[in-house]
């Protein structure tokens, strides 16, 4: 593995941020539910990646490696803080053309969906987010979480079914 120095390091970092920055940020935003914390974790992820570039095999895609670093950071922070992440209503998703009632409705639905998501155990929540928020393939999820492919498929399957079940329950509770 060759040593990366100066400009080369910056180029590799720039490339990584360009390629994975947004998807990593979206994943983290959904996982921790706080914009500042998500930004902070993503920054720390890339910083660690930069400081450990010599350990990264450049012949392999960086995505799973970065997501793994981010997940470990996220776990250690949550362990330290011991607080349940609660997602605020997200402003980014609402389309500007939507009317005020639609905006309210969309926010309400999103809040309920986030509530359902946070109720899922991490083993189902994380693969779901990697698939639906970051758009990772089964193989990439498998590499990120260090699980075999069949386990990834299984967790996605169960996670989706569970999400729908919890979501319906949350909606029923809110309607009552």
């Amino acid at each position: 593995m060759r040593e990366l120095r100066g400009d080369n390091r910056e180029n590799v970092l720039g490339q990584m941020v360009k390629e994975y920055g947004d998807s990593l940020f979206r994943f983290m935003l959904r996982n921790v539910g706080d914009r500042h914390l998500a930004e902070d974790i993503v920054q720390e992820t890339f910083l660690r990646a930069l400081l450990n570039l010599h350990r990264y095999d450049q012949n392999r895609p960086a995505g799973p490696w970065l997501f793994r670093i981010a997940l470990n950071l996220c776990r250690s922070r949550q362990k330290r803080q011991r607080e349940t992440p609660v997602a605020p209503p997200d402003m980014d998703k609402v389309s500007p053309a939507a009317g005020p009632e639609n905006i309210l409705l969309e926010r309400e639905q999103e809040r309920e969906l986030m509530q359902a998501l946070q109720a899922l155990p991490e083993m189902y929540r994380v693969p779901l987010l990697l698939k639906h928020v970051s758009g990772l393939s089964y193989a990439e999820i498998s590499e990120t979480l260090n699980l075999n492919l069949s386990l990834v498929k299984n967790r996605l399957y169960r996670g989706r079914i569970m999400l729908r079940k919890v979501y319906q329950k949350v909606r029923r509770e809110n309607d009552e």
Binding site: D22, E39, K93, L113, L117, V133
Partner: peptide, 12 residues
Amino acid sequence: LADGLALEASLP
């Protein structure tokens, strides 16, 4: 339903 989790946020 899970697709509804996707969002448009981007990094600073």
